[in-house]
Design a protein around this nucleic acid. Structure first.
Lengths: 342, 342
DNA sequence: GAGTTCGATGCAATCGATTGCATGAGTTTC
DNA sequence: GAAACTCATGCAATCGATTGCATCGAACTC
């Protein structure tokens, strides 16, 4: 109650409880090494003083910040909000805080470096496959690998831990779904090419088309950027291509929505005139008009698993030498943006 | 190049440059106090060793973490993604990192306490008006106010700094817009009642209705929770109310979308049968079908201003005793979810 | 040329928590 | 009953960066 001028330190608590600072520290981190009577006395002193541990001092001494860094190219994308939520939940249940960084300047090496080598964060949750492996490996101290888990987007390096989804297969299933509905003229809106996930989805698309014996038309492939604008741009491109596809597989929901919007402005209605499959199943997908058929990605699961793995690695040291490679499965959610061809 | 076993310290750099650690420190923080020749020598040593500052040590010494904490009830809401983006941008341009916390257990006092009194964060960006003032004031050390800026949602305490929008006025304008289109049967989907912003919007709604001489029907007021589900629930309530409103003012876009969705399932089309105004103008609003008429909140601006104010307060100490109170104006964006009554 | 000033740099204390080692009291063992 | 052992606790060094004060040499003044 009677708060002192500034935050009480472990010394203050020690004084209150008539013990040494060492004992207070032990009560807090290894209670079983302290007798019950002193333990109680210390606990009382802690609440009397309103003591909270000074993380800076702790980090300095332990060389661990109990903080992880989540880096994503654009937190602005609604895809990440759910993931971030899950990351925070899992991290805080393990006693970790979460720092968030976006690509700021265009020198990822510099900012990652700043965060990680400065004991601000103990490990990195990387949601961005566009970083080159070399710069990442350079981050760990010599020999010691930096705790790093790549999530959502794979890093093309088997030594890097990853938690991803079955992008290739999922893309194939999405295309098959369209084919099952009778579509043969199928277009694809591609994500940003620097992402591995994008390439996997494109590969899945191409593979499925080949297996189905359907032609892939170049002008029905639009390179997008995972945002609504590029969906609308894709619509424009397809409209200008002479013949309109009857179905489109989009690399994510944002682009699907942008595409449907663009098409509608030209009088092409979804699903009446064109079927559209998205990817991700973001929060508004079921509420869109039409409700979006999409490949759901288990985003909470991705966030949780990635965080759990990262913290396991941080705490287990490098002893578990086998890299973690988790592949979660996406699920086709059929709603109303796809239907049988007339 | 020749990286040592562990991260180099300021001592290592000092040794390389044949100066004392004090000098290295000065080169880094007050270059003008060091002669040019040594400065160059030190810079060379820094890049040779690959030195990065140890933030824990720095924080301990300076009693400042150069980190702010953004606390929001549910980061999962797409509203926050844009704000967070802006916060990160502004913070990192000032050399600050951003920690993110969600409401975890239901003891906000405890977690805020943990973060703030433990030198993890120097200040708090609070996006949650539901915390009671007492617990907040308890946070600062005696006499010294904790650097705190309430954003988006006002704390009903003039001593707390805030960056908010003109919720009341904005709500009135939204209702006026509906009235201008000839609507008289207007419903309102309210946000979670613990939020001040919600109450302001409700007050604005009521005020506008009174000024327009329109009756407020109780069964046309639905208490929602700022998510899509409650929009759909509101639709159900209105449908069951005997008479259908011809227009609805929703407390945010999520609920607007949920409402439109729910109405459509009952065969009530927007804007044909019912006009809907949302609030926020989240990223998918212009791409919805129909594109959403909504009160745009300057979210980047909110994030940027709030962050800037917070850091100013942190760095300026408590010397600027006048609380900051910024009120940004919302803008009515007319799209296609509202139209003149038939 | 002796005294004064100034700029550059080093010394050493400090921030607060942790932990290996030492100590001392109490308990067990033969 | 003395040696061996256990258990609880304290002492003091340590983590790495910052900064007030001291020092030292050079430049300047009269």
């Amino acid at each position: 109650m009677t708060a002192s001028r500034k935050s009480p330190t472990i010394q203050d608590v020690a004084r209150h409880a008539n013990v040494s600072a060492a004992t207070v520290s032990r009560v807090l981190s290894a209670p079983e090494r302290v007798s019950e009577t002193t333990r109680e006395r210390v606990h009382a002193a802690v609440s009397e003083t309103g003591y909270t541990i000074n993380q800076a001092a702790r980090s300095l001494r332990l060389k661990a910040a109990r903080t992880i860094l989540m880096a994503a190219p654009n937190i602005g994308n609604p895809y990440y909000s759910t993931v971030l939520d899950a990351v925070i939940g899992e991290a805080s249940s393990r006693g970790y805080s979460v720092l968030v960084a976006t690509r700021i300047g265009d020198d990822p090496n510099r900012w990652l470096h700043d965060y990680l080598l400065s004991t601000r964060a103990d490990g990195l949750l990387l949601f961005d496959g566009s970083l080159d492996t070399n710069s990442l490996h350079g981050l760990g101290a010599e020999g010691v690998a930096l705790p790093l888990v790549a999530a959502y987007d794979e890093i093309p390096d088997p030594k890097v831990n990853s938690v991803i989804t079955d992008n290739r297969l999922a893309a194939k299933r999405a295309v098959r779904h369209l084919a099952d509905l009778g579509h043969t003229k199928i277009a694809h809106v591609i994500g940003p090419s620097r992402n591995q996930s994008t390439n996997e989805r494109l590969l899945g698309f191409q593979e499925a088309m080949r297996e189905l014996g359907l032609p892939v038309r170049q002008e029905w492939l639009h390179p997008g950027a995972y945002n609504t604008e590029s969906g609308t741009a894709a619509a424009a491109q397809f409209l200008a291509s002479g013949e309109l596809p009857t179905a489109v597989f989009c690399g994510n929901d944002e682009m699907a929505v942008g595409l449907i919007h663009g098409m509608r402005q030209a009088g092409i209605e979804c699903p009446r005139d064109i079927s559209v499959v998205g990817f991700d199943d973001v929060s508004f997908a079921p509420y869109y008009n039409p409700p979006l058929t999409t490949m759901r990605q288990p985003r909470e699961e991705i966030g949780r698993m990635a965080t759990r793995s990262l913290i396991d690695i941080i705490e287990g040291g490098a002893k578990e030498s086998d890299p973690v490679h988790v592949v979660l499965t996406s699920e086709l959610i059929v709603r109303e943006s796809t239907r049988t061809i007339r």
